[in-house]
């Protein structure tokens, strides 16, 4: 059993194996992603009931919440990949880490943007230095920082260490973002979906949201894999197996 786990682990850590295996699964993942996101968006836009207090503006939730969730989850993924790269010096983990940074930055940007658009009809302002919004802005800068660091060094050996350390230090921000709506009760509403205890969202509104959240998890996996494959090709272009691809 242990031996099996060990060989499996080593195979998983091989860029060549990852490239070939992910290539086989990509079409299915892409199909599921498109299906979930398109049906979830139509459901949320046209078929979910109108909110009693916020009217139709609340429909932005079907993008805002999933991108925000993935922006936070993606940060942990990047930090864990960084830790694996630091501890075991696995090349693939480093490639995953630098592939997660631009994707996370885009998702954080979208979370801020959709939140800002939603804020205008609901709060009467596009921007407020509310605790949740400010801590999300810090998250965006952390992602951009990792991205900048990964390109700042000519030696990959220095770059991945700097990126991994910044990623790991930045994880402090994640629980702050998550808890900010409870600690500083200012403008942003508290969470409506809770893992523990009762959620305060109606099932008719929650079902399409769940479809969108699962759809965005698939989207995240899809783009992370695409980014990682491109990164593998770029770094392994001198190796024999990549030459055979052409």
């Amino acid at each position: 059993m242990w031996q099996f786990l060990k060989t499996w682990y080593h195979r998983l850590a091989s860029p060549k194996w990852f490239y070939h295996t992910s290539g086989r699964w990509l079409p299915y993942l892409a199909a599921v992603t498109i299906l979930l996101l398109v049906s979830g968006a139509i459901w949320g836009l046209g078929f979910a009931p109108e909110d009693a207090r916020q009217g139709n503006s609340y429909r932005i939730i079907y993008i805002h919440v999933p991108v925000s969730v993935l922006a936070l989850v993606g940060y942990y993924l990047m930090a864990v990949a960084g830790a694996i790269a630091l501890i075991w010096k696995i090349k693939l983990a480093d490639m995953v880490m630098v592939s997660a940074a631009p994707l996370g930055a885009v998702l954080t940007f979208l979370a801020l943007l959709t939140g800002s658009i939603w804020g205008k009809p609901t709060w009467g302002t596009y921007w407020e230095w509310d605790a949740r919004i400010t801590s999300m802005l810090v998250l965006l800068f952390l992602y951009l920082g990792v991205l900048a660091l990964s390109r700042a060094f000519t030696s990959r050996d220095t770059a991945y260490k700097a990126c991994a350390i910044l990623s790991l230090v930045g994880t402090v921000n994640i629980p702050i973002i998550y808890k900010s709506v409870d600690w500083w009760y200012t403008l942003h509403q508290p969470a409506t979906i809770k893992l523990t205890g009762g959620s305060t969202i109606h099932p008719a509104m929650f079902k399409p949201l769940l479809v969108m959240i699962i759809g965005f998890y698939c989207f995240y996996a899809l783009v992370l894999i695409l980014n990682t494959r491109a990164e593998i090709l770029r770094r392994e272009q001198r190796s024999a197996w990549v030459r055979e691809l052409i």
């Binding site: 009217g55 139709n56 503006s57 932005i60 658009i117 009809p121």
Partner: peptide, 8 residues
Amino acid sequence: MNGHGVYV
């Protein structure tokens, strides 16, 4: 969308 169309 009852006036919220431009935002949504």
